[in-house]
């Protein structure tokens, strides 16, 4: 039982990270209809900002945290201007954007390798205490922090999207960009904002996971594909969906590696995904949209 709880907490924590990055995928996809394959790199960028803030500048954890998230969000806007804007109006833009984001991802990772070197960095977690004992069960404090912060962020983001004017404008743009434009919504600004939020949550995920994963150039790509799968399992359309998708993938992966096969750990996420897509092509919460004739 104790082991099962440990596994579940680990699964939920890893799942939360997938969920945060998945959230980034979904926000960008629903608002500007782009699948960004460099999403995992936002997590890496956020984590490296944290490295600079904490290890080079010696800033306190919370301040470093805030600065890193903001810088990651700014990086998202720059990315948006350089990669997304020039290609967005091409026919079947999904395809060139995919490769452009992949190329960007190669570039970003190598640039960081040159700037920071290959040795992984260790950054401190939120708590100085490593483990917490609850009724005889030893849990890793950072895992708990990841779960709690993710939950808080989801509440915040849902409130933002559903209750604030800007959030509603984003949703309107998502549903019908042309009409949104006519209604006086500045869609270019919305696109920049979406990339900022999405890169910000990605960066946040990277910062949260940094004490667990260590900071290296490979940290982003290992998260991105699973997060992508999580987004699809959740339906690629809602905050709620991507969170639940992320948690499902995290748990399935952890249980699968434990009870079925460790060697095939990376396959479980995709087996779940394929089963989902074949039997429920629109994910858990996705709406079935048939072609208009």
């Amino acid at each position: 039982m104790q082991e099962f709880i440990q596994l579940t907490v680990a699964g939920l924590a890893i799942g939360s990270i997938y969920a945060l990055v998945a959230l980034g995928f979904v926000l960008i996809y629903t608002t500007v209809d782009v699948v960004n394959f460099a999403q995992g790199d936002f997590a890496m960028i956020g984590a490296y900002f944290m490295v600079t803030c904490v290890l080079s500048w010696g800033l306190p954890w919370w301040l470093a945290f805030v600065i890193s998230v903001v810088l990651a969000a700014i990086a998202g806007v720059v990315f948006q201007l350089l990669i997304y804007q020039p290609v967005k109006n091409r026919p079947r833009s999904f395809v060139p954007i995919l490769i452009a984001t992949v190329g960007a991802s190669i570039f970003i990772e190598q640039a960081y390798l040159i700037m920071y070197g290959a040795v992984p960095y260790q950054v401190p977690g939120m708590f100085s205490v490593q483990t917490v004992s609850l009724g005889g069960i030893t849990l890793y404090s950072q895992y708990l922090a990841i779960i709690v912060i993710t939950a808080a962020l989801v509440v915040l983001l849902s409130w933002f999207l559903e209750k604030t004017k800007t959030g509603l404008q984003m949703q309107a743009t998502a549903q019908d960009p042309d009409t949104a434009k006519l209604m006086g919504i500045h869609t270019a600004w919305i696109a920049a904002l979406v990339f900022a939020i999405s890169a910000g949550t990605g960066g946040l995920a990277g910062i949260l996971v940094a004490p667990v994963f260590n900071v290296s150039i490979s940290m982003g790509s290992s998260i991105a594909l699973k997060a992508f799968a999580a987004a699809v399992v959740g339906g690629f359309s809602s905050v709620r969906g991507s969170i639940i998708g992320g948690l499902i993938i995290g748990l399935v992966e952890t249980y699968g590696a434990t009870y079925i096969s460790g060697s095939y750990r990376d396959a479980f996420a995709f087996i779940v995904l394929i089963v989902f897509l074949v039997f429920r092509p629109y994910g858990l919460f996705g709406e079935k949209t048939s072609d208009k004739v």
Partner: peptide, 10 residues
């Protein structure tokens, strides 16, 4: 599109 891409990635 992306659903297809993902199954193939899987």
């Amino acid at each position: 599109t992306h659903y297809l891409a993902l199954v193939t990635i899987g």
